[in-house]
Computed example of a mutant assay.
Amino acid sequence: MDRKDFLNSIGMSAAAFAILNCVGCKKDSNSSSSADMTGPTGVNFTLDLSLAANAALLSNGGSLISNGVIVAKTKGGTYIAVQRSCTHESYTLTYQSANSRFYCPNHGATFSESGTVTNGPATRSLTVYNTQLTGNSLKVYS
């Protein structure tokens, strides 16, 4: 193989790799349901806080995802629950207790603990769910 063929081969490989990565990153408009964008409806579940799987909710600032909902315990010790997906493009949010907000790592959208948009590109608030603590049982419901 001469130099020209080698460079051509490298160039074609790089181009193919770039195209495959771009196609793989493209979000399919049909891949997210409206429930991902607006949050699940008819939410009604209970978390047993004595179980190891839910231990994150025993500490202020802890959070977990269950049934399409992020459940968190704020710095002040209050339980809150919102849809798990960003209203911009349905990427999974994270709860940042130090900043008292929900954050989308995809495009940087942020939401207050009450679900309102504090930084775009999202323009629609999160669906917020009710919480009720009774002993070691935390009920999350619409």
Rank of each mutant, 00 (worst) to 15 (best):
M1Y: 08
K4D: 08
K4M: 09
K4C: 00
K4W: 03
K4F: 10
F6P: 00
N8Q: 11
N8L: 14
S13C: 13
A14Q: 01
A15R: 04
F17R: 00
F17E: 06
N21G: 10
N21M: 15
C25H: 11
K26H: 08
K27Y: 01
S29L: 12
N30L: 14
S31F: 11
S32L: 12
S33E: 08
S34G: 00
S34P: 04
S34L: 14
S34M: 13
D36I: 03
M37V: 14
T38K: 12
T38F: 13
G39F: 01
P40G: 02
P40A: 09
T41Q: 12
G42N: 15
V43R: 03
F45Q: 07
F45K: 06
L47S: 03
L47G: 02
D48N: 14
L49K: 03
S50D: 12
L51G: 09
L51V: 10
A53N: 08
N54A: 12
A56N: 14
L57G: 08
L58Y: 00
L58H: 01
L58K: 15
S59K: 11
N60L: 11
N60T: 13
G62P: 04
G62L: 12
S63A: 14
I65V: 15
G68D: 04
G68I: 11
V69F: 05
I70W: 05
A72S: 14
K73V: 07
K73C: 05
T74W: 08
K75R: 11
K75D: 13
G76F: 03
G76Q: 14
G76S: 15
G77N: 07
Y79H: 07
Y79W: 08
I80T: 06
I80L: 08
A81V: 11
V82R: 01
R84G: 00
S85I: 01
C86D: 05
C86N: 01
C86M: 05
T87D: 04
T87F: 03
T87Y: 02
T87L: 08
H88F: 02
H88D: 02
E89Y: 02
S90H: 01
Y91N: 11
T92N: 13
L93T: 09
T94I: 15
Y95W: 03
N99K: 12
N99R: 07
S100Y: 04
S100M: 06
R101G: 04
F102V: 02
Y103L: 07
Y103Q: 03
P105R: 10
H107C: 06
H107I: 10
G108I: 10
A109T: 07
T110C: 14
T110R: 08
S112A: 15
S112F: 06
E113V: 14
S114Q: 13
S114E: 14
G115L: 05
T118M: 11
N119D: 09
G120Y: 07
P121Q: 10
T123G: 09
T123V: 15
T123N: 09
R124G: 04
T127P: 00
T127E: 06
T127D: 05
T127R: 15
V128H: 01
N130I: 05
T131A: 07
T131Q: 06
Q132T: 14
Q132Y: 10
Q132P: 00
L133F: 07
L133M: 12
T134W: 01
T134Y: 00
T134P: 00
G135P: 05
G135A: 12
G135R: 08
N136T: 15
N136V: 12
N136E: 13
N136R: 02
S137I: 05
S137E: 10
S137Y: 07
S137C: 00
L138A: 07
V140Q: 01
Y141H: 05
S142A: 12
